[in-house]
Amino acid sequence: MENSSLTVSEPFRSGSRLQLLFKPEAEADGTDPFLLKESEAANDRSPGWQKGFAPLTVSVIRAHTPFTCAVVLEVEIVHSSPKMSLPDRFILKLNDRRFGYRHSFVRKPSEWNSDREAPFVDAVRMCLDPRRSTAIPHYFDDFPGPHEAVEWRTLDRQPWMAELYTWKLKYQQYLAEILAYRCLQTLQGASIPRLHGTVRLPILCGSDFLHPAVDFVNGFAVSLIEGTPMNEVQVGRDLTKARAEEVSQRVLDLVRTIQRHRCLHNDIRLPNIILRNWPRQVDPVLIDFGAADIEQPHEPVMVYPGCGSDEVRETRSMLADPEYGGWHAPSPFSQRVNEKHAAYMGFFRVNDRIESVPEHIRDLQYERIPDTDGPDAKKKVLQWRVREGVKTRET
């Protein structure tokens, strides 16, 4: 559920300045991205979460509203260390539990306000077990149980629990996106944005470290893609059918490439595909890997509800759907499949299906079989065949 009143929050309005901590992305050195993710997650949960980060001040140029799973800002540098390899302008993505989609397992999603923060901080402080000086609660299940310092059952269904649950989901999205960028490092700067580094936005200053949910916001910096989302380009008005087909084929090639890296994006939609330097070029760039999943060795990849493992097929169906602009003309069935369908369903249905294809597409994909006209011929013989050299599909 989207909270419209939080589409532009005061800290992120245009012209606002943000005091961040920035850690540049290291050069590829062969380190396993999964091990790197685990070590960084452990660092997030410790008082040394600022290690390796340097101060960075940015000014908000534009807030990409409404905020959904994350706060997405176009920013420019006001002050930074000379060693930071950052462009003057870039995209800052913050997985801030306070803004955007807010999840809840105890009540309907509710808006955040400053009055909620103090009780949440107090609840986290109360749940810290004084007997474990180095153990910092991480996820929901890490807090003390019924027989420890705090009686768990007495805290059931409290608002602060929903706040922690929201943070947990956004933190998981942050880790998923960082991992996806690192596993797709060879595509950065071309087919996907370049990951410049990770950031921390302190939100609880002047106190001892409690928990990453209350002390800081996780985020990262990626390159700004100058272009237009595909959902803002209309086929037939802004570009021809032929050029739209060219774009769709490049999108499908990109999804195939990502799949070869054993990655599922899990949220391929037209708004998440940017046409770089449109209308001069038609280079698609895929963004927003917050729902991505990477297959680990000896471990099957997780498929999110509503998403399939064959994203190429799903993307092809989306691009061909008239509701999404009709970017793609699906490849025809092979002639062998057409003949098989005709034998099973009847010649009329196969002929009718081919004739329902838009004429400008049908003329490119099919040709009429000679001597197949006449009374009731449509019910008795196959009247069309696939042109030689046309790419076909079997399913």
Rank of each mutant, 00 (worst) to 15 (best):
K93W: 02
P109K: 07
F105A: 09
S114F: 10
P146S: 01
K108E: 15
R157E: 14
H147A: 01
A149K: 12
K108D: 15
A123Y: 09
P109W: 03
A135K: 14
F105H: 10
P146H: 00
W112Q: 04
D129C: 12
W152I: 05
H138P: 02
P119M: 00
D115G: 04
Y101F: 11
I136Y: 15
T154F: 07
Y101I: 01
L94S: 03
K93S: 01
T154A: 13
D122A: 15
R102T: 00
V124R: 03
D115A: 12
G100P: 08
V124Y: 04
V150C: 09
S110E: 15
L94E: 10
S110K: 10
Y139Q: 10
S133P: 08
L92A: 07
D142N: 09
E111C: 12
E111L: 06
P146E: 10
D122L: 13
H138S: 14
H103E: 01
L155S: 01
F105M: 11
P144S: 12
I91N: 05
R102G: 00
N113V: 08
V106D: 10
R131T: 15
P109M: 03
D122P: 04
S114G: 05
M126V: 02
F120Q: 02
F120I: 03
Y139S: 11
R102Q: 01
D156A: 07
V121E: 10
N113G: 12
G100T: 06
F90S: 13
A123K: 09
